[in-house]
Amino acid sequence: MQQWLKGRNAKIFAGILAALLLGMLAAALSADATSPLTRAVGFVFSPLQTVSTKIAGGLRGFGGHFVSSGYYQQRIEELELELEGYRAQLVDFEIYKQQLESYKGFLEIKEKHEDFEFAPATVIGRDAADAFRSFVINRGSADGVSVNDPVIYESYLVGVVKEVGVTSSVVWSILDPRVSVSAYEIRSREDGYLANTAALSLSGLSRLSGLDRATTILPGGIVCTSGVGGIFPRDLILGTVKEVLDQKTDISSYAVIEPGVDYANLIDVFVITSFLGQGEAE
């Protein structure tokens, strides 16, 4: 041992150890905390390190081929089940979102008309042979619905109940020529009544008749129910004025009204089962 310590190898070993210790001291004192040796080794070997890491990553993926298909099958089934759950939640979310949107509109009208009593309903069918957009709802006498109850969508009047079953009812839309609604234009306060023609109804439009020849109603005006007759409450929106024309058969004018509701896509509606003044002809 003493002879080794006195030999050349011991001196070389001591020199290397001293250099490493000095390097450590220099790393501790330097700003980037690396010794000159580490910096030199890193400079030489970092590209090789990168290649080695990439190869290792590839080999890890290659190893997946040797995993049994049973494992993957089970994993697929678990993920599909999870996905199905998320899809169902998404469907529920969309349904609730749509309901919330429609209820927001109804809440506004309920706040404006506290005397209204509603029955929510869904459109479940339509008469193929009816040209005027009548539809069937899933509420009937068991839900308090009766003939001549108005049907609304948000603040729009869409129709009136004309046939009532126990659990379903037929609603005639306001485009139907058999439906007559007394109305007025909100800016000019002029009174009129809805009297549809086949041509206008087929185009999805309505007609406000009985206006003066010197009417001041302009396109863009909003037409609402006037409440006369006791069937429809006041201030339900019928639509907006598209144009004002002179009647050919007499000295009155009429306004072409565009309803604010898309009947083809109407799904959720409300039936007003009771309101103040219902059944009282003014």
């Binding site: 193929a128 042979a129 040209a131 020529p177 023609t197 086949a198 041509a199 087929l202």
Partner: peptide
């Protein structure tokens, strides 16, 4: 029959529109 029934609601004014735009194509 359906056209004639509807026509009675319009006093026969709506027959052409109703028949040619809806019932005949249907």
């Amino acid at each position: 029959i359906r056209t004639l029934v509807y026509a009675s609601y319009f006093d026969f004014q709506g027959i052409p529109a109703l028949f040619f735009q809806f019932f005949l194509p249907s």
